[in-house]
Simulated scan of single mutants.
Amino acid sequence: MTRRIQPISLDIEGKSYEVDFEKEDVFFPFRPTENHWMGLDSSGRDVFSRLIHAMRISMNFGILLVAASMLLGIAAGAVQGYYGGKVDLLGQRSIEIWEALPFLYVMILLGSVFGQSFGLLLVVYALFSWIGISYYIRGEFLKLRKQPFVEAATCLGLPSRKIILRHILPNSMVPVITFFPFSLVSAIGALSALDYLGFGLPAPTPSWGEMFAQAQEFSYAWWLVLFPFLALFLVGLLGVFIGEGVRSAFDPRANTHYES
């Protein structure tokens, strides 16, 4: 709020001057200014610097989470798809049971016991996010295990480990490469959602979701909604564009044509 102060008259070198003052009460969150382009949050911290640090933390979290999820999903899907039969049946039923566990409740329980941390959130989320990619890898292995090159490797007496790692897995990586950018965007969005709900990273870790929570508390602080939303939208948009480009580059149908 800006208030005008009573003017003051000054005499300097025989000349009279009248000085007007405007007093502005500073309270947080504070609007964007010349020195703080994106304003200040509820604790007087620069929003721009927190956006940059939050993006670094979100990218690190997303990359680590997607890498761990991909490794777990590839391992589970490869074993089920290659061996099939009872191994596949038992694996599918186990995955369905594990998938039915409520992730948010598990996160709340472990967070209350061990405390909120980056490592705990990463481990718990990775244990629940590998299921989707395992279905794709399982389908690829079920399709490729009957191919002639796999049967030839089996007839040569190669062990299952070498057949899986050297022959089938390299030909099953299209879903992994295609879904990696989309999974990264999803992980960043999930982290922001958990931080907004208060179950994510501990304070005072910079987070886009935590800024959204502040904006809900201080309804006049439009800058706490606009700038984190633009950052989240831009990262998601770039991730989708990259994912579409990677999908087009590795799509086998694009390089296939039929001759009559």
Rank of each mutant, 00 (worst) to 15 (best):
M1Y: 03
T2W: 01
R4C: 01
P7N: 07
L10A: 13
D11I: 11
I12P: 03
E13P: 01
G14S: 09
K15R: 15
S16G: 08
E22S: 11
K23G: 01
E24W: 01
P29R: 09
F30Y: 15
T33A: 04
G39P: 05
S43G: 09
G44H: 08
R45T: 06
R50P: 05
R50K: 12
L51Y: 04
H53T: 08
A54D: 03
M55K: 01
I57W: 01
N60Q: 13
F61D: 00
G62N: 00
V66M: 00
G73P: 07
A76S: 15
G77F: 04
A78F: 05
A78G: 07
G84W: 06
G85D: 10
L90R: 09
Q92E: 12
S94I: 13
I95S: 10
I95C: 05
I97Y: 10
A100R: 10
F103I: 12
F103G: 09
Y105M: 14
V106G: 12
L109G: 09
L110N: 04
V113P: 02
F114M: 12
S117M: 07
L120H: 06
L121A: 06
L121P: 05
L122F: 02
L122M: 09
V123A: 15
Y125T: 15
W130C: 07
I131L: 13
I131K: 12
G132I: 07
Y135M: 13
R138N: 08
G139L: 08
L142T: 02
L144V: 01
L144K: 06
R145P: 07
R145L: 07
K146N: 14
F149I: 12
C155T: 14
G157H: 09
G157S: 10
P159Y: 05
S160E: 11
S160R: 14
R161D: 04
K162L: 11
I163R: 08
H167D: 12
H167N: 11
I168G: 02
M173G: 01
I177M: 07
F179A: 00
F182D: 00
S183G: 13
L184Y: 00
A187P: 01
A190N: 14
A193L: 14
L194M: 14
D195H: 04
G200E: 02
S207T: 13
M211Y: 08
M211L: 15
A215T: 13
Y220M: 09
Y220P: 03
W222F: 04
L224S: 10
V225W: 05
V225Q: 05
V225S: 11
P228G: 10
P228D: 09
L232E: 05
L237P: 06
L237I: 14
I242M: 08
I242E: 00
I242L: 15
I242D: 00
G245Q: 05
R247G: 04
A249D: 01
N255H: 12
T256G: 02
H257E: 14
Y258H: 15
S260G: 15
